[in-house]
Design a protein around this nucleic acid. Sequence first.
DNA 1: TCAAGAGATGACCCACGGGTCATTTTCTGA
DNA 2: TCAGAAAATGACCCGTGGGTCATCTCTTGA
Lengths: 241, 241
Amino acid sequence: MPSPTAPLNRRERERLARRRAMLDAARSVFAEKGYEHARLDEIAERAEFGKGTLYNYFEGGKEDILFALFEDSHAALAQRIATFFADPSLAQRSARDVFRGLLNVLLDYFRGEREVLALLLKESQRLMLHDDVAATRRMLALRERMVEPLVAPMEAARAAGIVRDVSPRLAAHFIVGSMLGHLLYAVTCERAFGSADPSACPVVGAEDLRYLRPESSTDMLATLLLDGLLARPDALFTLSS
Amino acid sequence: MPSPTAPLNRRERERLARRRAMLDAARSVFAEKGYEHARLDEIAERAEFGKGTLYNYFEGGKEDILFALFEDSHAALAQRIATFFADPSLAQRSARDVFRGLLNVLLDYFRGEREVLALLLKESQRLMLHDDVAATRRMLALRERMVEPLVAPMEAARAAGIVRDVSPRLAAHFIVGSMLGHLLYAVTCERAFGSADPSACPVVGAEDLRYLRPESSTDMLATLLLDGLLARPDALFTLSS
DNA sequence: TCAAGAGATGACCCACGGGTCATTTTCTGA
DNA sequence: TCAGAAAATGACCCGTGGGTCATCTCTTGA
């Protein structure tokens, strides 16, 4: 009965559905307890399976589940980025405008995926420098996935003299890395001091706090990433004393 | 006998010396095994103390030792940065030149402190988002220490119209964060593929690899951080098809 | 020399949750 | 209907190393 042209038969569809249920359960447990305090028992229970069953779907166990979560999420983000660049009307906008739009796509995505962001910020470096190099590779592949849809546009923009003459792939990595770094800082400040008590924060001024709020992040990131830190790079570094 | 004006008597000096010996031992064990596989027994043994004694010097146990290591290291780096900006001849150089020099100070420092860099890259995010908010605060203070000597010069440069009109402290955080992000990527690529086998690397071209080598990192980082990604920000985003 | 406190010591404790696998249940196709 | 495969299950195993604290040693100063 299933259409013969469909790539998946019922068996496979059900398997995928179960896998998805497990991932959903994992996501919610991870969100509540964080990766390290999440117990496989609880994930299994919430997904209404036995713990052992998880291992039929995720051979690598707990860590494998985390990777799968990341992979899904990165695929979704890559999709959004590709969609963004597919818009033909981009050609009517200035380069700054376009890249600012890109930053917004990235920031919006993570704003909507708080749980994944938290996991990513907390676990990614550990996994990147994990004893098992396979994990390192898997994390790099993940990052690559996110960067991939950026490479072609950047390459073209470089050829057109719009972006600087640096490797498009590395520049893309730089953008993504800087953005995540900023998010980490913002999230950490929030954790440490709460939005409620700015006075205890070493990030002193109201000015600083304003830029840590998500709405304004784009402005600062766009300025620094796209235009650079220096307004007058060739001026002498003579500061009024 | 100890000069009465000296702030420390023998007792205190000895205590400091022991503490230092423990930190040296910890550093070497951490370097060999990484933080998580380092055993306190081994640190104690290498420092020629009993394990319990460690707790007289580092109340917080293993994690406290790591923090102490980070604190020493960050103080040293802050010192270097301050020294860099104290040089009066900076006023004869262009802003780009000066900030490029700053990047070199940062990169050189971590090149000379590989072990600390590895620990910092792998552990910092976990600690920043640690369950115990005290750890979060301590990590933020650390970062702040590194950023602190940058703030005054940046503030002055901003007033002089040399750097863009963004919060100096946040801009400094951005610089430091981006640099660490780049180092993480470089270290991770090296781990995953070794310098030996570039062909298996998804970072495809020789161009990419060149910029991951430490010597060239400065160039790319300086370009992207100081001048920004966009060469012609106001040009239309029209790519030759 | 000795009392008293500071400091050093290392054997022991213990929680704990990820992973395994023998067994049971369900599914499939003839 | 049933045989055999595929999938689900969850009780059990297991290693581990950080942290504690009762005990011992050493320093100090009278």
